[in-house]
Amino acid sequence: MIKAIGVTNCTAVETESDPYIPLTVTWINESRLQPLYWRITGEAGGELEIKVDPQSGAIRELVVIDEPPRTVDTGLPQLPHEAGTGIPVFDCSPWGDSTKPDYSDFRSRVITSSEAVSFLKGDDTATLLFTANQTARVLTCENVEIHLAGDGALSAVVVLARPCPDPAG
Score class of each variant (00 low, 15 high):
Ala168Asp: 12
His147Ile: 06
Asn29Val: 06
Glu16Asn: 12
Thr41Phe: 04
Asp124Thr: 14
Thr127Ile: 14
Ala12Asn: 11
Ala4Leu: 07
Thr11Lys: 11
Asp123Glu: 13
Arg109Thr: 09
Ala126Gly: 09
Thr11Leu: 11
Ser98Pro: 05
Trp38Leu: 05
Leu129His: 01
Asp73Gly: 03
Asp91Ala: 05
Phe119Ser: 00
Ile28Val: 10
Trp27Tyr: 14
Asp18Gln: 13
Gly152Val: 12
Pro165Ile: 14
Thr127Ala: 04
Thr74Leu: 14
Glu49Thr: 08
His81Arg: 15
Glu115Met: 06
Pro19Leu: 15
Cys10Tyr: 02
Arg39Thr: 04
Tyr103Thr: 01
Pro69Ile: 02
Pro80Phe: 11
Asn29Arg: 12
Gly96Leu: 06
Thr135Lys: 09
Thr125Ala: 12
Val72Asn: 10
Ala168Leu: 15
Met1Gln: 07
Ala44Gln: 08
Asn9Trp: 13
Val52Lys: 00
Ala149Glu: 03
Lys51Tyr: 05
Leu33Gln: 09
Ile87Asp: 01
Glu49Met: 11
Ala153Cys: 07
Ser118Arg: 02
Val159Arg: 01
Glu142Asp: 09
Thr99Ala: 09
Thr11Pro: 04
Asp123His: 14
Ser56Gln: 04
Ile28Cys: 13
Thr71Leu: 14
Ala149Asn: 05
Val158Ser: 08
Ala149Arg: 00
Gly150Ala: 13
Asp53Thr: 02
Thr125His: 14
Thr15Val: 13
Ala4Arg: 01
Asp102Pro: 07
Thr85Gln: 13
Tyr37Thr: 08
Phe90His: 02
Arg162Leu: 14
Glu30Asp: 11
Ile87Cys: 08
Asn133Ser: 09
Ile59His: 01
Gln78Asn: 15
Lys121Arg: 12
His147Glu: 15
Tyr37Pro: 03
Arg137Cys: 08
Pro68Asp: 07
Ile28Met: 12
Arg60Asp: 00
Leu154Ala: 06
Asp166Arg: 11
Thr112Trp: 05
Ala12Met: 07
Asp105Phe: 04
Asp123Met: 08
Arg32Ala: 13
Ala161Leu: 12
Glu30His: 13
Glu14Cys: 08
Trp95Gln: 00
Asp53Ser: 02
Val158Glu: 05
Ala4Met: 08
Val64Arg: 00
Leu148Cys: 10
Glu145Val: 00
Cys164Thr: 13
Thr112Gly: 04
Leu33Val: 03
Ala58Ser: 15
Cys141Ser: 03
Ser108Leu: 06
Thr71Tyr: 04
Val7Ser: 09
Ile28His: 15
Ala132Val: 06
Gln78Glu: 15
Ile40Phe: 01
Ala58Thr: 02
Val25Asp: 00
Tyr20Arg: 11
Ala153Pro: 03
Glu61Ser: 11
Thr41Arg: 05
Asp53Met: 01
Gly152Leu: 09
Val63Cys: 02
Asp123Ile: 08
Val159Asn: 03
Ala136Val: 05
Thr135Ser: 12
Asn9Pro: 05
Gly42His: 00
Ser104Asn: 13
Ser108Arg: 08
Leu76Tyr: 05
Thr85Glu: 15
Ser108Ala: 06
Ile111Val: 07
Gly57Ser: 08
Asp166Pro: 12
Pro22Glu: 11
Pro163Lys: 13
